[in-house]
């Protein structure tokens, strides 16, 4: 496939999602929540200071809470786009026409993933900029490396989420896919809390534990890359979770390889 075709397919992915109202809704909700949340926090803080109440969180700490919130929303948005980027071509019968062209199926998938990822990246950048404006005073307290790394590292979990959404969309539609990936992500998070510090994860196996172990091994640990930012931010003595980061990378690549394998053999 030539570069122009790849660029057009990638841009076409962005166009498709820009036409969906959900993207604008999520942006509006994010801006609303960030601004309203900030205003409430400031008002609450002033009230407590007047009455001599306990010390509230500093702006620096609040900044990182906002960072976590943006990342959680971004993963949700990335899953949503991942679920729709190929599925919409299938449901509108355009896929047959597209794949009849000399387009390599792997490059087609990559263009869909890249387009969705670019859009989520734009959303993240916009949210971080807004957060930076709101917490302008606190930025001085935050190490420069952490500030630079934060938006860049955040792009990794969203890429994994787009790929996971795409994988699920090969079997189910958008709504069941969202429920399924949501359950899997929650299950993965639960499994992580159970197995991360377990001395012997394989002891006393039950059905629930086996499901948890599978999720722990298979679902990319979306939060793992953020340990790098936390380490540089010095908000807590956080070690970089290299094992979890490796699992995140390997699981993401494996999901893409399986998705590509299935997609290349799928009849349309």
């Amino acid at each position: 496939m030539n570069n122009r075709a790849f660029f057009l397919l990638t841009w076409n992915t962005v166009q498709k999602e820009l036409r969906s109202k959900s993207f604008y809704m999520v942006i509006a909700i994010t801006i609303g929540m960030l601004v309203i949340g900030y205003s409430i926090m400031q008002a609450f803080r002033e009230q407590i200071q007047v009455e001599g109440g306990p010390q509230m969180l500093g702006n620096g700490q609040l900044f990182w809470i906002y960072y976590a919130f943006i990342n959680a929303w971004s993963v949700f948005l990335a899953l949503l786009f991942g679920l729709g980027c190929v599925r919409s071509d299938i449901s509108s019968n355009v896929i047959g026409q597209l794949l009849a062209f000399p387009i390599n199926r792997t490059w087609y998938l990559i263009s869909r993933v890249l387009g969705s990822w670019l859009l989520v990246g734009f959303y993240q950048l916009l949210s971080f900029l807004l957060t930076a404006v709101l917490f302008f005073d606190a930025i001085k307290e935050i190490p420069v490396t952490a500030m630079i790394l934060a938006p860049m590292i955040s792009l990794l979990p969203t890429l994994a989420a787009v790929i996971l959404g795409l994988f699920v969309s090969l079997w189910v539609g958008k709504a069941p896919g969202m429920i399924l990936t949501g359950l899997a992500a929650m299950g993965g998070s639960w499994a992580r809390s159970v197995f991360a510090d377990a001395e012997n994860a394989f002891a006393n196996l039950s059905l629930l534990k086996v499901v948890g172990l599978i999720l722990w091994i298979v679902i990319p640990r979306f939060a793992a890359p953020h340990s790098i930012v936390q380490n540089f931010a010095e908000t807590a003595n956080t070690e970089i979770a290299w094992v979890d980061i490796s699992q995140f990378g390997v699981a993401t690549v494996m999901i893409f390889i399986i998705t590509n394998f299935v997609f290349k053999r799928r009849g349309f």
Partner: peptide
């Protein structure tokens, strides 16, 4: 060259854009 029974493409594309897209992906 393939013409399906019901030619359908992204409805928000203009005719010229559609043909440009087809030309590009045809190499």
């Amino acid at each position: 060259g393939y013409l399906p029974e019901k030619f359908s493409f992204y409805p928000y594309y203009k005719v010229k854009d559609t043909l440009e897209f087809h030309a590009a992906v045809s190499g």
